[in-house]
Design a protein around this nucleic acid. Sequence first.
DNA 1: GAAATTTACATGGTCGGCCAACTAAATCAC
DNA 2: GTGATTTAGTTGGCCGACCATGTAAATTTC
Lengths: 168, 168
Amino acid sequence: MKADSTAPADPACAEALPSAARGGPVSHAVSRIARLHRIAAGRLLKGLGLYPGQELLMMHLWDGGAVRQSELIKAVDLDPSTVTKMLQRLDQAGHVSRRPDPDDRRAVLVEATEDSCGLHASVRSAWSSLEEHTLAGLDPAERAELARLLAKVEANLCQETDGCPGAG
Amino acid sequence: MKADSTAPADPACAEALPSAARGGPVSHAVSRIARLHRIAAGRLLKGLGLYPGQELLMMHLWDGGAVRQSELIKAVDLDPSTVTKMLQRLDQAGHVSRRPDPDDRRAVLVEATEDSCGLHASVRSAWSSLEEHTLAGLDPAERAELARLLAKVEANLCQETDGCPGAG
DNA sequence: GAAATTTACATGGTCGGCCAACTAAATCAC
DNA sequence: GTGATTTAGTTGGCCGACCATGTAAATTTC
């Protein structure tokens, strides 16, 4: 008494597909993949004391040494308030240090702590693992094609959305 | 001491790429696309009084009529607590109605309100628009290929992650 | 039929993420 | 130099989403 009168005229192929998937299959896939990808990242990062999202910030900090917070915001392309709160937590966790910029008294210089540098290799390893997990079963040509198509999609979504750094 | 000794041996091609993109280009793209896609969805849904994520719940409700909350949770594959809170807000906003299931006194029957049905067409239109925005500039073959590759990625990410409905 | 287990939701807390509004400092305009 | 504007960050509020925990009802077990 679950699927007797609920299936009007569609064959069996439609009963498992939510209308979201029919009306926008790629959008639907993006939503689901985003969540699964984030969960997978979270599992890998959990042992490192990081939450998903923080690793991107840290990677930028490990890349560039001490940077202005505004530079960091542009680099990760997030809302300033998001970065502020993430940095507050990363600061409290001992992963980053923040000090006022002597050259500009409203700016803040952010730097990865010495302690956090020990995480660098682990995070890179976790990301490699995540990448491999994500792309398992895809041959190099498929991976390249996926990367190419995702780049186009990203460019599309950047369009009309102000504040896209690499949307040239 | 910012960018003199920090650049060891890389040519100019590396200075614009964060290490996250080098260590996991697809993962990096997925993160960024997820965020941009969500923002794009949010803009389209804002005028409809919905927040991104809620539309998927509503679409399932519009699809199936009154459903048990547990069925809804399985359908959207989210954490039960997430669904509970979303439904509380959707209820308060007048988009859904919740009543106890007479056959199972711990279960809750959820249904889209009559009022919300007016949104159905708008949401479908918004999703079509989002899909087209996402896939602009991709020919049908590319779209199919992208959908195929994303399905493989989704299956990969579902693996080892319990609670994947369509991970057959 | 009583006890243990599973199922169905709800609650509280935490994070990432957004927007809106605010403060302080630097810069531009005059 | 004084005032307007931009820039830099912070705060508060909200939502999606997670986990861990708790409670009530149904189900299984004995």
